[in-house]
Design a protein around this nucleic acid. Structure first.
Lengths: 343, 343
DNA sequence: TTGTATGCGTTATCAG
DNA sequence: CTGATAACGCATACAA
């Protein structure tokens, strides 16, 4: 029966070659003080014998797992899938492995995930926070142990944890200003839970743009939901019920913007003539909807790569004073037909 | 300085409580032959002392990592993101962790990934194959060690490896037949590398549907590319150069179908009147493109859940005769306006 | 129900 | 450059 054969260990290799296990270990780890000849011989014999290093034993000794943990709200969004792809690339290039879990937007599961990561002894943790996370005590055990915790996108302020994000305030300010320049005076803003800094900052950017253009901020024009497709439909219905229709909509994500647009279009609303639209994220569908959606390009892949790079840096420079230097990535407004009244 | 404090072990707990480490170990693992009282005391003390189990030591003893490996071509596609979300849910419910990597569609990287998984001692492996993988020798080390290897979506025939997929032949047959019923007689098929069974079978389904409806199969109507958006544009250009335009297009994925449609629309082609369209996958954008795209609904999330479930079954029933029972999941054609000529 | 003793496979220390 | 030896922290066989 297969699977019952004994696994080869460095002792087996040592016996076969009449050298010590210590030398075998050193040879396999490319230790400088082993002769080229021995190294070559050991590596070859190991391969021949079907040896595979036992990472459990190795990790037990070295106290390193070479595994990075990742906790995200959802794995299946365009942005997150891109981010993970970028992270995986960055880590695997440095021979780190990635273990992933999703909080499904609840702090409760996020705490469970964090504990699992702790037990799995990840060497570092990358986190994008759940919808309702209001404190990060569950990451303290990592911080206490000097295990780097890095937040990206959905970040949290902590002087030991670097953050990677884009300037959401600025991006929202720009895109709102753009709508105003296109003649919009009553702009609806669709956003989510203000606990998440990304949404709070976009909201602030929206408000500031109104203010700077002498447009009265009207709380009734702000719709707060979960930015899902379903929420987009509901938002459209809410808009249609307004006594005075808005002439612009800035949604905090594309997903919601698109389903909102579709619903309004079905009711005969002309876009951008009646209502100009802007989203956020530059999802693939933004180039499919008609008219194409003006949005903020915000590439997850790059953010993932950067997060991985920062993590590697932290792990390599373990002894250096680790100040939480944060990174603000570029984002850019992409103007498409959904907001272009003046051509 | 933080991080320098010694980690608590079961010995520390044992000392504190004046019991043996063995009892602590048993108590923490909820072993039946430990008194309720001791268990409770141990668990509480462990928590108070900030103990975390050392998975390295534990794994070294038990030879189980409680980690499942996942190798996929790309992490960032709608289908794969959904599948991974389903897998993660299924595994985490059973206290398994998930370690992921992407082959970026090359067999070379897939082999590297497999080796990394081997060294990481995953308890099982879930695989969706790269574009050009033409043999699976790199998974033999797992099979030899009785580590379950399960293929999903992009599968490979092996009598020890269960497969999870949909009936691609049937789905393609149905959707092609649908196009024919809508009056199409010259149907282009856009597909990918025939090494991958999914595409080969969709191709076969297409051919069989033509045959059964007495439509001559024309090799010139078959376009083989990588099904990317870029490839969709190129396909449209190729179609426009055809001396006689086709009256239908069946693309092996939505992504390519959509960019192809967009390009043709820009050239004034009416859809579905001039050319009827059908895709595969039911990506979110299929409901955004105008007209909405007829496609095959093929939910990744469910496939992921099923893959996780099958893996758990294999791991639990370790001793049972493990015959590679494969699973064929449901898929369904969704008819939308892109193919509806007869209303 | 609890304790004792041992080994899992590696790496680091020390000695040569 | 190489060898002997001692941990790393846990789980289990066996003994009590």
């Amino acid at each position: 029966m297969p699977g019952d054969e004994k696994e080869i260990t460095i002792y087996d290799i040592a016996n076969k070659l009449n050298i010590s296990a210590a030398t075998v270990s050193r040879a396999l780890n490319d230790h400088p003080r082993v002769s080229k000849k021995t190294k070559k011989l050991v590596v070859k014999t190991a391969a021949d014998m079907g040896y595979r290093s036992n990472s459990f034993a190795s990790s037990l000794r070295t106290k390193n797992s070479n595994i990075i943990g990742l906790i995200v709200p959802r794995l299946n969004s365009n942005f997150m899938a891109d981010a993970i792809a970028g992270i995986e690339k960055g880590l695997s290039n440095n021979h780190y492995n990635l273990i992933i879990s999703q909080s499904l937007e609840t702090m409760k599961k996020e705490i469970n995930n964090a504990n699992a990561m702790l037990v799995n002894r990840v060497d570092g943790l990358l986190v994008s926070l759940a919808y309702d996370t209001n404190n990060i005590d569950h990451f303290e055990p990592f911080i206490k142990r000097n295990i780097p915790v890095i937040f990206f996108d959905r970040v949290f302020e902590h002087d030991k944890c670097p953050q990677i994000y884009i300037d959401n305030f600025k991006a929202a300010y720009e895109i709102t200003t753009h709508l105003i320049k296109q003649g919009c005076k009553r702009i609806v803003h669709i956003t989510a839970n203000q606990l998440r800094k990304v949404y709070a900052e976009r909201y602030e950017g929206y408000k500031k743009a109104l203010e700077d253009n002498n447009i009265w901020f009207d709380q009734d024009l702000v719709i707060i939901n979960d930015l899902s497709s379903t929420a987009g439909i509901a938002s459209a219905e809410q808009i249609l019920r307004m006594t005075m229709l808005p002439d612009g909509v800035f949604s905090a994500n594309d997903n919601c913007a698109i389903s909102c647009m579709q619903t309004l279009k079905k009711q005969g609303i002309q876009i951008p003539a009646d209502i100009a639209f802007a989203g956020f994220n530059n999802d693939p569908s933004a180039c499919v909807i008609e008219p194409n959606l003006t949005t903020v390009n915000y590439k997850g892949y790059e953010m993932g790569e950067v997060a991985a790079k920062l993590m590697i840096d932290q792990l390599i420079n373990k002894n250096e004073l680790r100040h939480a230097h944060s990174l603000v990535l570029r984002s850019e407004m992409i103007v498409r037909d959904s907001s272009l009244r003046i051509k």
